[in-house]
Simulated scan of single mutants.
Amino acid sequence: MLDLGCGGGRHAFEVYRRGADIVAFDQNVEDLASVEAMFAAMKDEGEAPASAAAEAVKGDALDMPFDDASFDRVIAAEIFEHIPHDTAAMKELYRVLRPGGIAAVTVPGFLPERICWALSEEYHTNEGGHIRIYTRAELEAKLKATGFHIGPHHHAHALHAPYWWIKCAVGTGNDDHPLVKAYHELLVWDMFQAPAVTRAAERLLNPVIGKSVVVYVRKPLDAA
């Protein structure tokens, strides 16, 4: 499996923990050093099966250093909204995925993202920030034009949307603001405790204000 634009590596760690061979791919060397250190720690602590392999690789999403059809699965989480040539990156994803392979592609949901842009210019103009807002229809159309078969979709992380609205309202770099700190503590508590009330609330809110939309696509079996 490839974690394309792995960032801090949270998806890659879970994939490794579940026993798949994982490549964490990004252009940020600091993030990759941290991911590589965590892979080593997980191996030492026996948190991943001995049969699984994990590595961190630096590179450009527009020109990945992998052979055609190298991966059975790809995760591309919250990456295409950062890339000016998003369709070129989609073509690279298509190239490295094997025929019949599945990719999970996520981008920020339209409504939560529009609110963030309205609240803060800094949010979408800073270096490495979001340069476009996708509708699901646009994302699926671009993936379909690349050659993918479009599968199911869902929304996720509704409880994260208000956190970003607060950050945009008080300043995206103002992590010490009392409201930001309080809501962040709530999210951490929810992540580790997973109480029934917040899990139920998020399921109800996801279709409306889910911070991410997730689209599953498959490369055709007869792809050249």
Rank of each mutant, 00 (worst) to 15 (best):
M1I: 07
L2G: 07
L2R: 12
G7I: 00
G7Q: 07
G8Y: 05
G8I: 07
H11D: 14
H11F: 14
A12R: 02
A12M: 01
A12S: 15
E14D: 14
V15L: 15
Y16D: 07
Y16L: 15
Y16F: 15
G19W: 00
I22Y: 09
V23K: 02
V23C: 04
F25E: 06
E30V: 15
L32S: 08
L32F: 06
S34V: 08
S34N: 10
E36R: 14
E36L: 00
E36G: 13
M38Y: 01
F39V: 06
F39A: 05
K43A: 15
K43W: 04
E45Y: 02
P49Q: 04
P49H: 01
A50W: 02
A52N: 03
A53S: 13
E55H: 12
E55G: 13
E55W: 01
K58W: 06
G59A: 00
G59S: 09
A61M: 10
D63I: 03
F66Y: 07
D67P: 09
D68Q: 10
I75Q: 13
A77Y: 09
A77R: 10
A77V: 05
I79G: 07
I79A: 06
I83A: 02
I83V: 13
H85E: 15
L93N: 08
G100R: 06
G100C: 01
V105L: 00
V105C: 03
P108E: 01
G109T: 05
F110G: 06
L111M: 11
E113A: 05
E113Y: 05
I115S: 08
I115T: 10
C116Q: 08
W117A: 08
L119S: 08
L119R: 15
S120I: 11
E122P: 10
T125Y: 04
E127A: 15
E127I: 13
E127M: 10
G128P: 09
G128F: 04
H130K: 02
I131L: 03
R132T: 07
R132H: 03
I133P: 12
T135I: 00
A137N: 13
E140C: 11
A141C: 08
A141S: 13
K142S: 13
H149Q: 14
H149M: 12
H149V: 14
I150W: 09
H155D: 05
H155R: 12
H155Y: 14
H155N: 11
H155I: 04
H157D: 02
A158V: 02
L159W: 00
C168N: 12
C168I: 06
A169V: 04
G171I: 03
T172E: 06
N174Q: 09
D175G: 05
D175P: 04
D176E: 14
V180S: 11
K181M: 10
A182Y: 05
A182Q: 01
Y183T: 02
E185N: 13
L187A: 02
L187E: 00
L187G: 03
V188F: 00
D190L: 08
M191C: 10
Q193T: 15
A194D: 12
P195K: 01
V197M: 13
V197I: 13
T198P: 05
A201I: 08
A201T: 11
R203I: 01
R203S: 11
I209A: 07
K211M: 03
V213P: 06
V213A: 04
V214A: 08
V215S: 11
Y216V: 15
R218S: 15
R218A: 13
P220L: 04
L221Q: 12
A224F: 06
